[in-house]
Design a protein around this nucleic acid. Structure first.
Length: 272
DNA sequence: CGAACCTCCTGCGGGC
DNA sequence: TGCCCGCAGGAGGTTC
């Protein structure tokens, strides 16, 4: 579920409530996520949040004890604010106790998310973060960069842009949408994509992610923002999840194929 | 090194 | 109605 826009939406939702807020304690109901939640997280108490940021799909929460919490939402994770008396739902695995009227709950049915702790000074050197590619919305991700990479790799353009070591934050939904926007068939081997189209692809990724963030992300099944509202970008998807429906541009039926073991949606007329 | 496949887990929708 | 199967937005690990 959460791709970059959903993680960014979560960050923007939780930041105002967590910044300078004290975390009194943490309750872990289910420690087995993608990896076991470490004791350093479980034992966290009486710390104050001093900054929050996002790197790729990771949330980084810096605290006043020189430690930073690294959270990944996996495929089905979400963070939302609740009143302590609100009924606890199945799969509410982690509870941040903030004060008498508010707590933050991490909910993740599939348990592919993770919670890690790292000294703040070395958080970006963490093995999970150090090899990540550039942020898609920063100037390091530009046509020259993608053209140089595409030239020396041999895989489909779709799996290239979904590789977090190439560019972060582009998941299956937005990869499909960006390739549609740029008019590129997703199975094209990346070194065969014309330079002009690679330039269009960089722009498309930038525009689609920006638009999705503005809409609060995409809610397909159960993604909700931290205030429990859904994201509204799903209404603007052109190809993703629209198998056999007409292409919004030319009315050709949208095709589905599998690439890198992921469902891939495209228009066989618009994308060559 | 790069590419392709496997894997973790639960929930849901479609088909019978 | 209910059961079973396949599939789902991520991405690290393994293997070749």
């Amino acid at each position: 579920m959460p791709e970059l826009p959903e993680v960014e939406t979560t960050l923007r939702g939780i930041s105002p409530h967590l910044l300078n807020q004290k975390i009194e304690a943490i309750t872990v109901n289910q420690p087995q996520l993608r990896w076991l939640i470490p004791d350093s997280v479980i034992q966290l108490a009486n710390v104050t949040v001093i900054s929050l940021e996002r790197r790729a799909k990771y949330l980084l929460i810096q605290m006043d004890n020189q430690q930073s919490l690294i959270i990944h939402l996996g495929m089905s994770g979400s963070l939302r604010f609740c009143h302590p008396s609100d009924e606890r739902r199945k799969h509410d695995h982690v509870i941040f106790h903030l004060n008498d009227t508010q707590e933050l709950r991490y909910h993740d049915p599939r348990r592919f998310g993770c919670f890690l702790m790292e000294p703040t000074t070395s958080v970006f050197e963490h093995p999970l973060l150090i090899k990540l590619g550039p942020e898609p919305l920063c100037s390091d991700f530009n046509p020259d960069y993608l053209i140089a990479l595409a030239k020396k790799r041999h895989k489909s353009i779709k799996t290239l842009i979904m590789d977090q070591h190439v560019v972060v934050g582009v998941g299956n939904i937005y990869a499909c949408e960006a390739l549609f926007s740029a008019g590129i068939h997703p199975a094209t081997i990346c070194n065969k994509v014309p330079t002009k189209k690679l330039k269009a692809l960089v722009s498309a990724i930038h525009e689609i992610l920006t638009a999705a963030i503005a809409q609060g992300g995409t809610t397909l099944k159960d993604f909700v923002q931290s205030d429990h509202q859904p994201g509204y970008f799903a209404q603007q998807l052109c190809v993703y999840g629209r198998a056999n429906q007409p292409c919004p541009t030319c009315d050709t039926e949208i095709t589905v194929m599998t690439l890198g073991q992921r469902s891939t949606f495209y228009c066989s007329t618009c994308q060559k």
